[in-house]
Design a protein around this nucleic acid. Structure first.
Length: 264
DNA sequence: CCGGATGTTCACCT
DNA sequence: GAGGTGAACATCCG
């Protein structure tokens, strides 16, 4: 996805709709509503309510609906997969998504929410995203932007799998995706294959600091793809920091580019 | 034609 | 139970 940075942009884009009454929801295909098996008709409980609040946790944007702005009666969770875009009145905070749709094609619109004033559209060519009524967020750990050092230490300390895999595990901390995880490890000099529980206290502290500064910086720059190491994700490239040849591995089932020169 | 790409989930192994 | 792998989803690109 759309990692947490893009989800945050999307959540901000929804805020102008707060206070407006929802008149209609269209979902196409119906399986875009998860869990599969739920009927889009269930979404009719939202019709007539106003958008009361919005928030983001991890990579999920949550819209709260109620009889007025002060109360929430039901929620709608939105996940964006790898190629999900969000538009309000036809324009979105992100116009170019790396690996995303390459043309303007409304046949990829999977969910459309018509408000009394304004239209919210979720467009997702690959259909890896989803929406969920009263989303189950219990599997998510602390958000990457607010996790404490002790929470991070606890999350990493309880598992021996690769550090990279642990950072991608949304139940350890919520919001990091493949690009952000690689950029963070590259910045703080930790090898992705280290057993997560092998980190020393000072390394966990450095990692925690780097998570915060990297998310802040790339949010300013404009997205998860704006990291200093993003252009090193190609064979033969040399690390900007130490000149070593970048290595490609797989951890947690995902491509991982890292520098054997300064990450250990 | 084939493999891989900011993701998640599930079945199936070890 | 913990973790890993591969498939599936649909599209684009090299």
């Amino acid at each position: 996805m759309p990692e947490l940075i893009e989800a945050a942009y999307y959540e901000s884009a929804c805020q102008p709709l707060i206070g407006h009454r929802l008149d209609e929801i269209v979902v196409d295909p119906p399986e875009f509503l998860r869990p599969v098996g739920h009927s889009p008709e269930e979404l009719e409980v939202l019709i007539g309510l106003v958008l009361a609040r919005t928030f983001r946790i991890g990579k999920v944007v949550v819209l709260g609906f109620g009889p007025n702005v002060g109360s929430v009666a039901a929620e709608l969770g939105i996940r964006f997969g790898m190629t999900g875009l969000l538009f309000v009145d036809g324009t979105g905070p992100i116009d170019h998504l790396v690996y995303g749709p390459q043309r303007d094609d409304s046949s990829w619109d999977r969910a459309t929410l018509r408000f009394a004033h304004g239209v919210l559209t979720i467009r997702d060519p690959r259909r890896l995203g989803s929406i969920e009524l009263d989303p189950d967020l219990t599997g998510l750990g602390p958000d990457a932007t607010s996790i404490t050092v002790s929470e991070l230490r606890a999350g990493l300390g309880s598992t021996r799998r690769a550090l990279k895999a642990a950072l991608l595990d949304q139940s350890v901390l919520a919001g990091l995706g493949n690009l952000l995880a690689d950029e963070i490890l590259w910045r703080c000099g930790l090898a992705p294959g280290r057993p997560a529980s092998s980190l020393e206290t000072r390394e966990v502290t450095a990692l925690h600091d780097t998570i915060a500064t990297t998310v802040d910086e790339l949010t300013e720059r404009g997205g998860s793809h704006t990291g200093d190491s993003f252009d090193l994700r190609t064979p033969e490239s040399r690390c900007h920091r130490c000149g070593s040849i970048m290595v490609r591995d797989r951890f947690g089932g995902r491509s991982t580019w890292w520098c054997p020169g300064h990450q250990s």
